[in-house]
Write a protein that binds this DNA or RNA. Structure first.
Lengths: 341, 341
DNA sequence: CTGAAAGCGCTAACAC
DNA sequence: GTGTTAGCGCTTTCAG
C-alpha cells in the first residue's frame, strides 16, 4: 500500500500538479468538477499528503516542542496533555524532550529541535542562564517558559505567582496560630526558589513575625533534601523551636514528612505541614496533605493559546505584542496536616 | 541571525554543494584541508543543517511517535521518559499524542502522524480493533504496542504478563488465608482486562477455590467504577461474603478503598486489598497499598530498543525477524493492606 | 480556471 | 577528491 504523490495523481488524471494541489487544499478556486475528480482519485489511490515536503516548501513544520525536566511528574504530564489538546486543534503536533533535569541534555535537545525547525518551543529550563535558548529566540520562533523562568527581560512565560503561593501557605499556618514557621526552600539561584522564599518572608513581615534564619533550610527540590533538611531542623528544635513547616516542592514535602514520622512526632498534633504541588492521587482514604497547588490545566491552556497567537501574529507580520509573563493564581488545597497551635 | 544553507556556504567558499555536504556529514572522503575550511565557515556563518530537507531526501524523519491515552498518568510518563532516553541516543525525537482515551482522537492523531511520515510508532491503543493502525503497519513502519494489545497475529508488543500479574495478587491473598476473594475486573473486550481476569481464575483454580461469579465485578478502569462496583459488592456482602478484594487498575483500587472506608469497614482488618499499578508517591508515611506493579522503566527500555532494532533491520533490508510479543514480569509490591484471614 | 516552471535545502549517483 | 545534476513532494508565482 505505497502511498501516491500529487504528481502521480496528476498524470493519472491528465491534469497538472498545481491543479491537484489546489483541489486538495481547497484554498484556491478550482472548478467543482475538477475538484471532485481529484478527490475521488485521491481516495482511490490512497493519496496521503506528505507533510515533510510541505514543510520544506512553506518553512513551517506545524510542530512545536516541549522541553522539560521530567515528564513522569504529574505536574508536567498534566500541562503537556493540555498543551497538546489545545494546539492539536490547529493541526500542530508536539515533540517531547525529557532532559532528566540535566543542562547538557537540554542543550543537546534544543540543538536537535532547532535543526528540525520546530515552529515554537515550550521550555521548563534547568539552565537559568538562558544561554542555550537564545539562538532559538533570536531565530524568531515563539518560546514560552514555564515553571522556571530565566532572568531575562524579553520573554514569554506562564507561571503561577510564586510569592503569592508562599503567602497563602504562611497565611494558612498563621491563621491556625503558628508563628514559628520553618521553611524548606529551594536554590538561591533559581527564580522559582527565590520567589517562593521571598513570598514567605513577605508574609511573615506582614504579620510582624520576625524571620528566624535558623528556620530557613535550603534544599534542591528532591526527596532526599526534604528529608535531610527536615532532620536538621528537627535536630536543632530545642534551640530553635517551630510548630510548623512549609516545604516548597512535592518531593521535599514527602521527604520532610518521612523525617517527622521517623522522629516520632505526629502531624499535625506536634508539627503542622503545608506542602507544594501535592497531587492527591485518587481520593483514597488517607491523611490528605494541605498543599499549595498550581492550576496545571490552566497553565497548559494558556501556554497553548499564547503559542497559537504568537504563531498567528508571525503569519500576519504584525508586531509581536510586548512579551508577556502570565502570572496565574495558585490555590491552597486544604488537607489534614495543619492543626491549631 | 538567519541561518545559512549549504549552497550559500558553497558559494562563499568557491566549492560545490556536494563537497560541503560531504565535509559536513563526514561520511565520504574529503581532503582534510577542505573539511577544515568548510567546518570553519559553517561555524562562522552559523550554519545549522535543515533536517526537514534531509528528511525529504532520505525519506526518513528521525522521528518516532508515541500515542497514548493519558500522559498525565505516572505509568505512561515513566515509559515515555525511558523511550525518549533510549532513542534520543540515536538521534531520534519523539512526537507525543495524548488521545484522552478516545478512539476518534486516536484515529485523528494516527492520520496526522502518517502524514508527517514518522519512522516508527508506539501505541497504547484504546481501539482494540486495530483498524486505524493498519495502514501504518502496512506502510512498513515499525509499530510497537504497549499496555493494550489488539488481537492480531502479526505485531510487536511489549507488555507484562497480565495473567501472571493476577496470579501474584491471588497468591498473596491466598497465602494470608483468604479464599473468598472478590475482583474488580475490566472490560471483557480488551485483552488486558481479559488476561487479568483469566489469571485470577487460573490462580483460584490452582488452589481449588471455586470462582463465585457473584464476586466478579466489571469496571472500566476509572475511579468511579471502582467505587461503584465496590459499593455493589459490599451491598451484597451478606449473601456473598468475601474477605479480600483485588482491583485491576490504579484508579479502581482507589475508588474501591474509598467505598470500603465509607462503609465503615477497615483495611486490612475487615477487608484486605490488593491493587494494581499503585505508585507510592514519595515514601511519605501513610498506609501503603499492596499492589501488583509493572516495571515501567524496563518496558520503556525494551520498546526503545525494539524500535531501534526494527529501524536498523529496515535499513539493512534484512528480513524482519518474526514479530515478537515481549512479556515482562510484573512484581508484587508489599504494602499494609493485606491481613491474615 | 488551469498549466508550466521555479524552487524549499539537501543527498547521492555519476562523471571527471 | 570534487563538481554536476537530478530529484525528494509540494506550493506558488506567473502566464495564458
Amino acid at each position: 500500500m505505497k502511498s501516491t504523490t500529487i504528481s502521480e495523481l496528476a498524470k493519472e488524471l491528465g491534469v497538472s500538479v498545481s491543479t491537484v494541489s489546489r483541489a486538495l487544499n481547497g484554498k484556491s478556486v478550482v472548478k467543482e468538477d475538477t475538484r471532485q475528480m481529484v478527490l475521488e482519485a485521491a481516495e482511490k489511490y490512497c493519496y496521503v499528503p506528505n507533510e515533510i515536503a510541505r514543510s520544506l516548501k512553506k518553512s513551517s513544520t506545524k510542530t512545536m516542542a516541549v522541553v522539560l525536566p521530567d515528564i513522569s511528574e504529574t505536574f508536567f504530564g498534566t500541562i503537556v496533555k493540555e498543551i497538546d489538546r489545545v494546539v492539536s486543534g490547529q493541526g500542530y503536533m508536539l515533540i517531547l524532550a525529557d532532559t532528566h533535569e540535566n543542562a547538557d541534555n537540554e542543550k543537546k535537545y534544543l540543538d536537535m529541535l532547532y535543526t528540525r525547525r520546530v515552529d515554537a518551543l515550550v521550555l521548563a529550563t534547568v539552565d537559568c542562564s538562558g544561554s542555550t535558548v537564545r539562538r532559538f529566540m533570536e531565530s524568531g520562533a515563539p518560546v514560552v517558559f514555564i515553571d522556571n523562568v530565566p532572568d531575562l527581560q524579553e520573554l514569554d512565560a506562564v507561571t503561577i505567582d510564586n510569592r503569592q503561593a508562599s503567602r497563602m501557605a504562611v497565611e494558612c499556618l498563621a491563621a491556625h496560630g503558628h508563628r514559628r514557621i520553618a521553611v524548606i526552600a529551594g536554590s538561591e539561584k533559581e527564580t522559582t526558589g527565590v520567589d517562593r522564599l521571598a513570598g514567605y518572608e513577605e508574609a511573615m513581615a506582614e504579620r510582624n513575625i520576625p524571620v528566624d534564619r535558623k528556620l530557613v533550610a535550603y534544599g534542591n527540590y528532591k526527596w532526599e533534601s526534604g528529608y535531610l533538611q527536615m532532620k536538621r531542623l528537627l535536630a536543632l528544635r530545642k534551640e530553635n523551636p517551630f510548630s510548623a513547616v512549609y516545604a516548597i516542592s512535592e518531593k521535599m514535602t514527602y521527604g520532610a514528612m518521612r523525617a517527622i514520622a521517623e522522629s516520632g512526632l505526629r502531624v499535625p498534633e506536634d508539627i503542622s505541614v503545608v506542602g507544594f504541588d501535592i497531587h492527591q492521587v485518587g481520593m483514597e482514604p488517607r491523611q490528605k496533605i494541605t498543599s499549595v497547588r498550581q492550576p496545571e490545566v490552566e497553565i497548559g491552556r494558556r501556554v497553548g493559546e499564547l503559542l497559537l497567537r504568537r504563531l498567528a501574529d508571525l503569519g500576519e507580520k504584525e508586531d509581536q505584542a510586548g512579551h508577556r509573563r502570565l502570572l496565574l493564581d495558585p490555590f491552597l488545597e486544604e488537607g489534614e496536616t495543619v492543626g491549631v497551635f
